[in-house]
Amino acid sequence: MFIIYLFLFSNLIFNQSYESYSILDSIVNKLTPPTSKGIITQVNTSPVKKDRLFKYEYFADNVEGVQLIRYIFPKKVKNNSFLIKNNGKDIWAYFDRTRRIRKLGSHVSKQGLQNSDFTFEDLGKNNNWLTDYKIDLKKEKNDFIINLNIIDKKKSDYDKIIIYANVETLYPSKISYFKKNINEKTLFLDNILYNNSFLYAQTMLMKNNLTKTETKMIIDEVEFDVLFDNDIFNENKLQK
């Protein structure tokens, strides 16, 4: 009898953890579709300084784990580019004024993109959510609330992440990032739209709770299922 209970219990636990894993996997895939390109407006807001506006072209192949960002505004940084490979571990920068291509150290992946609250790492596919965290899933009204707790603290900057995702669409509306149990920053995903069969948040707002700064990313144009040229993600071709 005990063995039957043990079997049923372990089966229940396994099913729950499998369900949590597959829901999180769907969320990660919805946040970062296989291929996409678009134009994004970035607004950096600070409580003490005037807003700063940037505009860039964005190309992503999340199957290969590569993203390319090429600035189009302001003119000072026009054509400056960042090529992010291996999900943020490998960053190449191109500075158009000096025509230099430089490989940046991986410490830069923790830094904000053009001083924003989005780090280079935030832009990549968060596959590490599935491998480096213990997943705890709850359901509350229309949302899944997924608590991710880090297993090995050396593996990620955040020791806890809480994701609020719609039960039907599995698209998140809010993601909170914690360091040492302090909610360092929160991402709000608004204006969720369909483009063909792909869901995307037209407005992403990252609020830094420590510095009180905010960065808003507004998707002006987007296209999914893009067929890229072989060499678009080649560091030697960053120079236009």
Partner: peptide, 12 residues
Amino acid sequence: YSGNLIFDIGSS
């Protein structure tokens, strides 16, 4: 050479 020889320190 450019990369990260130790930890996340940029090295070249």
